[in-house]
């Protein structure tokens, strides 16, 4: 297991390097002088020339890359044009919201997706299966922005149970109860992904239930519930674990929409605003952070995979 982990960590390095080159080139791929782009329409030629020299845009591209990479490795992602602050601290200010939102969403996906998927598979063909399967289909088809707006209308505007927008930090007044601000957004984000997991759990469990070893388990005289959980679900989990990596990728893009709908001060909304403000260093920084995060999550999924399936790590 340790050797496998080390091997997987090593394979991250070339991927990270490739990603860093793409992120670095991002500013240079936009046609025109990067300094002019960074400064916007109102800049004078003198200002452009000054920034160009300051940022090193007049040097050869590969030199610029290594300087940039050196800075990144030291935690310096540049300075936000809009905020006049280091990019890292701008991203950091949105991190609390986004991390809490993502965690709550993941918890919903697991709490809703797995049990309903198991129920649907073990009651295959009954009315329970019909209801859960069509419910999952519906949840998977609803666009997140639409669901978000609907939840706001019902639970915030009409019923007044939950706040409709914003998120004060957990360290602010209200403490842990501030999580109620994230309830509707996290449910919105979780719905389509939980639906996906429901369908996946159901399909994999039905697949596994036809395997020979399940017949062996039944021949032991085990209770059907034990056969379903310990033998069928446990094997189905291997396929489901792999899907969590994709779910995470989907979460990132869906979070951009959801944070905008619910006006949450998270990284998703930061990206949208930075694009509108042409704050390229921030966009660059966020992309880099997301790439690293995505790779870490997928590494975790791979390790979980090896842990779930003893046939993997030994190869």
């Amino acid at each position: 297991m340790l050797a496998y982990t080390a091997k997987r960590l090593l394979t991250l390095i070339p991927t990270l390097l490739a990603a860093s080159i793409l992120v670095f080139l991002f500013v240079h791929l936009i046609p025109g002088d990067p300094a002019a782009i960074l400064l916007g329409d109102t800049a004078t030629p003198e200002e452009v020339a000054q920034l160009s020299a300051e940022m090193g845009f007049d040097r050869p591209l590969h030199v610029q890359y290594f300087i940039w990479l050196g800075n990144v490795l030291q935690g310096d992602l540049g300075t936000s044009i809009f905020f006049r602050q280091p990019v890292l601290s701008v991203i950091g200010s949105g991190a609390e919201t986004s991390i809490l939102l993502a965690s709550m969403t993941m918890i919903w996906i697991i709490l809703i997706g797995l049990p309903i998927g198991i129920l649907s598979a073990t009651r295959q063909g009954t009315w329970i299966d019909q209801i859960t399967s069509s419910g999952a289909m519906l949840a998977a088809s609803i666009p997140t922005f639409w669901l978000g707006l609907y939840l706001i209308m019902i639970f915030s505007v009409t019923l007044g149970w939950f706040p409709s927008s914003g998120f004060p930090s957990l360290s602010d007044h209200g403490g842990i109860t501030n999580l109620r601000y994230l309830l509707l957004p996290s449910l919105t984000l979780a719905a389509p992904n939980a639906a996906l997991i429901v369908r996946l759990v159901r399909a994999s469990m039905l697949d596994v239930s036809r395997e020979d070893h399940v017949r062996t388990a039944r021949a032991k005289g085990l209770h059907p519930t034990r056969v379903a959980i310990k033998h069928i679900f446990r094997n189905a989990l291997i396929a489901v674990a792999a899907a969590f990596g994709f779910t995470f990728a989907a979460l990132i893009s869906e979070a951009v929409v959801t944070e905008t709908v619910f006006s949450l001060p998270g990284i998703g909304r930061l990206v949208v605003q930075s694009i509108l403000r042409r704050d390229y260093p921030v966009i660059q920084g966020v992309i880099l952070v997301i790439v690293v995060l995505y790779m870490v999550v997928n590494l975790a999924v791979d390790l979980a995979y090896a842990r779930l399936d003893p046939r993997v790590s030994l190869k």
Partner: peptide, 14 residues
């Protein structure tokens, strides 16, 4: 008790 035809797949792989 029963034993089956397919020894390769009759045991739970995990």
């Amino acid at each position: 008790a029963m034993i089956f035809q397919e020894p390769m797949t009759s045991l739970n792989p995990v």
